[in-house]
Structure formats: C-alpha cells, structure tokens
Design a protein around this nucleic acid. Structure first.
Lengths: 340, 340
DNA sequence: CTGAAAGCGCTAACAT
DNA sequence: ATGTTAGCGCTTTCAG
C-alpha cells in the first residue's frame, strides 16, 4: 500500500491482475469473471478499501455533489427543506455540500465560487436578503451547472424554481382575518427585492379589496428579515393613534418578534390584535398563544428541488427550466379569533 | 476551450506559454515574471476561470474539506455549532461537507463512508443516539484522518474532544433548584451510552448528596432523545402519588416536550414544579414561561472544534488528541422559583 | 524565469 | 474475460 489508504492498484498487485479488472469488479461491470470479482471484493473489504471519489470525479467530470446555499440555518425553515433534499439526493447517490450566506451577498458570492471550484453537479439555492445583483449566479449557469431556486429568488433570474403559492396563501390568511371581524390589518412584509415578498403583499392587498376594505399604506411595513426590525415595526404600529386589529406577518422569526413585542405591551392576542404568519417553524406551535399560520410543505419543497435538479443534471446540458408551485395550508391555532 | 469550463491549459494556449507557468502565476509562486503573471491573471479573469479543486485535491492528496456529521439540524443546537465551525474553517480556506445521521447508526455509517470517499481532511462529529459500536469511526482514524468529537461521544473512543462541563453545569442547576426550596427533583436523562448523559446524572446526584437529599431511582428517567418519550416520562412523573417539585432536563427539545405536558396537566410552573434544562436553543426564551437553563457556548464549541481539527490536519499525522472543556452558564428565567 | 514530464487514482476505449 | 493505455486538471521536481 502506498499511502494510508488502499487503492485499486494495491488490490491489483496483491491479486496479480490489472487495475482495470479491479475497477470493473468493483463497479460490477458486465464482462467480469465471477471468481475474479469475488476475490476482488473480498480483498477490498479486507483492506477496508473505499473508492477515491476525487479521482473518479476528475475522470468522469462529475462529482455527484449537489451544492446548497441558504441564507441561514438557525431557524427551522431551511434545515427542514435540506432534509427533503437529502432524502432524494442520497437515494440517488448524491452528496450535499451545504453553506450559509448569512444573508450576505459577499458571502453568497464566496460560497458560489467555492461550489464552482468544487465542481458541484448542480446548485440549489435561496438568495440572501441582500442579493440584488446576479452576475455570480449567471456565471454558474453559463458553465452549464443547473441551478434550482426555492423560497427566495428574483424575477430577473431564469432557472428552475420550487415555490409555494405565496399569493394564494397570503390571500387566504388575510381573508380569514377579515371573516373573523378584523378590519384594520397591518402587514409586516419581506425584503422588497424578493419576488416572494411582492406576491405576499399582492395577496394581502387583493384580500382587502375583495372585501372592500381600504388599503392603508402606513400599515404595510417592510421588515427585511433583520433582527430587531420586526419588533421596532410592531412597536410603531402600537404607537399609532388607531392601532391595527390584526397583523399578517411575512415569516416566522418575524412573527415571533412581533409576538414578543405585543406581549410586552400587554396586548391581548387575539382579542385586541390577531396575529397570523407565513411559516413552518415548530415554535409556532408552542409559543403562547400558538400561532395561526400558512404552513408550507418544507420537506416536500426540498424533495422537489432535488428531483428537479437531479433530473436536469442527468439529462445533460439541454434541460428546460421549470417551475413547480406547491400548495400551502392555513392552520388556525390560537393567535387569531375563531370564525364565529 | 475544451469543455464548458476554462482550465490552465486554455490559458496557456492563448498566451502561448506552458501550463506550469500558468499554474505558478495563479498561485503566485516565487519564480515568476510579474508581466507574465499579470497577463495570466487578466486572461483568467476574462475567461471566468475557477480552479478545479478536484484536480488539485487529487494531485495534493488534500481536499481542504472538513466533514461534519451531526444527529440532526432541526433544533438550533447543531446549526449554531456548525456556524462556529464555518467561521474558523472558511477563514482557514476549508470548505464544509455536512450531513445528518438522523440519529441512526446505519446512516451515520453511510455518511462516514461518503466522507471517506470524498477524502475529507478531517471530521467533526457528534454521535447519533443509537451509536454503540465504533468500528466505522476507528476505520476513519486508522486512515490517518483526524476526528474531533463534540457534545456526543463515547469513552471508548480516542480522539480530540470539545466538551462543556456537563458535570458542573448539572450540579449548579440542581444546586440552584435545591436552594430555591425544591426537594423532590426528577431528572429526564439522556441515552445511557453517551458519556454526556452520565456526567449530567453524576452532577445531579452529587448536588443532591451535597445537600443530604436522598436519591430516588424512580425519579431518574432516561429519555433517549426520542420524540414523544419525554412527554410520556413527564406524564409518568405526574401520575406518581407524590409528584416531583422540580425537573432537571437533559436537553432542550426534551424540555419543550416536558413543558407542554406540564401545561396540558395544568401544572403551575414554577409554583408546583420547577423546570430547568441543559440548553441553548432560542425557544427557551420565548416559550411560556421562558426556561431557566444551563447555557452552552455553541458558537465557541464549533470554533474550538474547527481550530483543533485544522491544527491536527496541518501538523500531519502525528498529532496528539486533546480535550477542551468549555464553561457553561446558569441562566435563570421564569421556569424556576427565585432564590428568595 | 520557464518548460517538459511524471503522476495523483480512476475509467473507458481499444486491443487481445 | 482481461490487459494496455491515455487522460481528467493540476502541481512539482528537474532541466535548461
């Protein structure tokens, strides 16, 4: 054995056969004597041989690695999606290289370079909140590396997308609030550059319009997913002469902040103010009161993204980008009033 | 350009120089004409050249990838540690390959194989709750790949470790409970195979002994980190003729389950039963009541693990395993009684 | 300061 | 059914 780790060369020498025969035996190719194969497999196991993926990647120009770039994985959202990706990826023989942009465009770019250098076969990503230029992503696509976006993307970008029906979910949530008697409904919105934010705002607006409720611009506050921003925005709402009687929140961490702020101000939920959010974090269920929410199928988002991506990777460079839109579910808990 | 992606060969041909010169220019080696270097760098950038990490890994027998295997990353614990790892790793030019064992020994083994195949330079890991054989890990170490453990390890294993002072943290927590007047203190413990579980139990026991409080075996219930197990155990405690007046819980997800169970049974916290846990998840702060906890320096655990590992990777195969023990902090919130 | 050439471990024609 | 050989893209002696 030359280094610490056995290679097909070691096996070949000990068995007095050629390395190509060993290679064939190991990947149970067609033309191979069962006896030879058995001997190779036996010795391989004795030597604790593990194929060198680096070498075969180089040879095959294929790494079987899928890159994932997400803004963060402190909150449960992205990890749950990644779980879904892992499910499909591992079953199809792909490994995952994961990194976080920390919501920073600079780090996102650095991550992309690392992924390209590592020659990932494809990339699944959700943009950072800062991302407003797209050269780094175009560069990946120009190399023929397929990219699948989820959750956070921008209309300027082509590429496959896995989305939830943000518009419909938002509409349903606000519609529900109205049907429980709320009339002055605020919206803590997401970063303006993200398509998702716009769609949720549109759903919010249309639900109001559908019920002939006037839109008040001052009740729509973009929150940018910055820590502390939601709290500040909520406090701002509470300081108004006329307080809102409901808040529709763009996502879960933002909603938690809003909730804490409401409680600090001794606002009774949902009697004085109802709270509902786009979400799927488990905390929603064990904060007090448990949050009503538009729940997204996170695991399935991950699975779908992985399936789309692997499909594109394997069908070669002429894939057609496609978009899959998944349904959300309105789950009513205790932070909104009952219907009757 | 041969394929989609530029190589040093492409640069060499266009500049009519040799690939070795290009290579030197790109890694600003010593003996290189500044003019040549400038030309190479310029063309590289024009071609959007990204070095092929696969090729250089093969050549150098070094991937600059650190593998991380954790049981899960749904709860905030492991992601926060990974953040710390990423911090140090990226600064030192390493990439991360992350996977989850899903608390399964089988998957842990598969992950290890994948990591070995990918020729990671080192491995950072926390064992799954099922792990009770260690051949797969020994096999990694036999290859000369350094392994650093954190949070979950076993005494049978050698290798570097980053720990928190489980014994001391547990002792302090239980001591605090006693000083607030609790006498019948239960413990929802971790899986028995993990060293950590044992140390926390020992801290629990010694605190009781220090105050001359008799140990009641039936109040110590191992919870194995299985979903639902903690709830069941808590219910069991509540069904006793004489209920405990405090519960010390091995970790955060377990504590959340216990909390929910207590609330379902309309137990007043902390008046009837105090609750305290080993933790660092942010939920602790926004459940109702916020949980008192022994807080661990998660980011620092990750940084320390990465630093240890990279040190070992770079100082070659003769590294000496070492153990770093970090301090915890007792944070009193609302789930325990005040001292006076 | 630059070029030629070997080789990291593996796969896949192409021979035999 | 097996062996020979070239080469994936890069780094690194060794020569010049």
């Amino acid at each position: 054995m030359r280094g610490k780790q056995a290679t097909i060369w070691d096996i070949a020498v000990k068995l007095n056969i050629s390395i190509s025969t060993v290679s064939r035996a190991l990947r149970n190719a067609a033309d191979i004597n069962p006896e030879t194969k058995k001997a190779v497999l036996k010795l391989a196991s004795e030597l604790d041989y593990q194929p060198n993926a680096i070498a075969s990647s180089l040879r095959n120009s294929k790494t079987n690695i899928i890159g994932i770039i997400v803004p963060e994985f402190i909150h449960a959202y992205f990890p749950k999606v990644i779980l879904g990706v892992q499910d499909v990826a591992n079953q199809s023989g792909y490994k995952l290289m994961i990194s976080q942009s920390g919501e920073s465009l600079e780090i996102e770019k650095a991550n992309i370079h690392a992924m390209v250098s590592s020659r990932v076969d494809g990339l699944i990503m959700a943009l950072s909140r800062e991302t407003d230029t797209y050269d780094h992503i175009l560069s990946v696509q120009k190399r023929g590396i397929p990219v699948v976006f989820f959750n956070r993307f921008a209309d300027e970008l082509t590429g496959s997308k896995v989305l939830v029906d943000d518009y419909k979910g938002a509409f349903e949530a606000v519609d529900y609030l109205i049907r429980t008697g709320c009339r002055r409904i605020a919206h803590l919105a997401g970063p303006e550059k993200l398509t998702m934010s716009g769609n949720r705002i549109k759903g919010y607006l249309d639900a109001l319009k559908a019920h002939n409720i006037p839109v008040l611009e001052e009740l729509i506050i973009p929150c940018d997913f910055m820590e502390g921003k939601a709290r500040q925005a909520t406090q701002h709402l509470l300081n108004m002469k006329e307080r809102p009687d409901a808040i529709f929140v763009v996502n879960d961490p933002t909603a938690i902040e809003a909730l804490i702020c409401l409680k600090e101000n001794n606002v009774r939920i949902p009697d004085e103010i109802s709270l509902i959010c786009f979400s799927n974090a488990p905390h929603s269920t064990f904060v007090d009161p448990p949050l009503s929410a538009i729940v997204q199928p996170l695991f399935k988002i991950g699975q779908t993204a992985a399936r789309l991506l692997i499909g594109q990777v394997e069908q070669g460079k002429n894939f057609i980008p496609s978009t899959e839109k998944l349904e959300t579910e309105l789950v009513i808990r205790k932070s909104t009033r009952p219907l009757f």
